[in-house]
């Protein structure tokens, strides 16, 4: 077995003069659920299309389960499942037939068995004989996900699986993806939905034409904002701020009205010292809490290239 499920080296795609994907270097482990997070037009679909051997890289290389894109395309196609941006079902055919066709194309041994298994798993069994054209958006998406899984691919690409869905359909789909975790499959999930990425993914790449950051959701937060505590006082006073700044372990401090956000290396040990110093200076401390930046803050600040914004107190 190859060391990585997915490997990209300087993967680049140009459309004429338009650089859609610029020198991506990434290695994704077997069984990892990897979030590929970026705004519209970031190049997510283009990346997935290259990895699924639908379009050729302009330069650089990619490997899927050790097979090189552009060389072992047929083998890669057998080993990956893909949920494309639009479900692309055969609308005039029944749900069951839609799946049977793909099961056969993927050379599934037990066609009827696999089709039934996934129709049941995705709660479409009762509607199996209805034409896909009569399905709601959520059901179509589920059918398309079933279609991508019939041949039990070790690598699964999901291109914005919930983007076009209403909140409740999105939740159903997200819940299903969650059940896929721990089946040992590698999942490459494109999304611009942060909650989705955070909830489902082991690691996240923030991506816009090129990779901006790659890490676990927690580490991404920490990497960008460090750890911060917020202290709310009854009244604002520059003297209090000065007092805290005087402590040598305070890395940075921002004050707004009567609230200070203080960046620390070891909040558990340092917070009591700050409180003591403030009380000595005559401040009335109303509350103290660690600041949790939402992934959204991280994302916005990364994608917009701006500075870290003030987080909220949790």
């Amino acid at each position: 077995m190859a060391e990585f499920a997915l490997e990209m080296r300087n993967l680049t795609k140009r459309f004429g003069n338009n650089l859609a994907v610029d020198g991506v270097n990434l290695a994704i482990l077997h069984g990892e659920v990897f979030g590929f997070l970026g705004p519209n037009g970031a190049g997510k679909t283009t990346t997935v299309r290259m990895l699924a051997c639908l379009i050729a890289p302009s330069s650089g290389e990619a490997r899927v389960n050790g097979h090189k894109v552009g060389v072992d395309d047929m083998q890669i196609r057998r080993e990956v499942g893909i949920l494309t941006e639009t479900p692309g079902l055969y609308e005039r055919l029944s749900a069951r037939l839609n799946l049977e066709i793909y099961a056969k194309l993927y050379g599934v041994k037990d066609v009827a068995g696999q089709v039934e298994r996934y129709l049941r798993l995705l709660e479409l069994w009762d509607r199996r004989n209805d034409n896909a054209g009569t399905f709601s958006k959520g059901m179509r998406q589920k059918l398309a996900i079933a279609r991508a899984l019939l041949h039990e691919p070790p690598v699964l690409f999901l291109d914005e699986p919930t983007a076009a869905l209403d909140p409740s359909a999105a939740k159903t789909v997200r819940d299903f993806i969650e059940t896929l975790r721990g089946e040992g499959r590698t999942i490459f999930l494109c999304t611009h939905n942060l909650d989705e990425a955070e909830r489902l993914c082991d690691r996240i790449a923030v991506f816009r034409q090129r990779l901006i950051a790659v890490d676990t959701p927690d580490a991404l937060r920490r990497q960008l904002f460090g750890r911060q505590v917020a202290v709310r006082l009854r009244t604002a006073n520059p003297a209090f701020e000065q007092a805290v700044r005087g402590l040598d372990f305070v890395q940075s401090l921002s004050a707004q009205d009567s609230e200070m956000q203080i960046q620390l290396t070891d909040p558990e040990a340092q917070t009591p010292l700050i409180v003591r110093r403030l009380v000595e200076a005559g401040a009335d401390v109303q509350y103290v809490a660690e600041v949790k930046h939402s992934l959204e803050d991280v994302y916005l600040s990364l994608v917009n290239g701006g500075s870290a914004q003030r987080g909220g107190v949790q």
Binding site: R77, G88, Y90, E91, Y106, A148
Partner: peptide, 14 residues
């Protein structure tokens, strides 16, 4: 135009 070509071309069919 019905978007069914992309998943089809992703299957191992020549």
């Amino acid at each position: 135009v019905e978007h069914s070509l992309e998943p089809l071309l992703a299957t191992p069919i020549t």
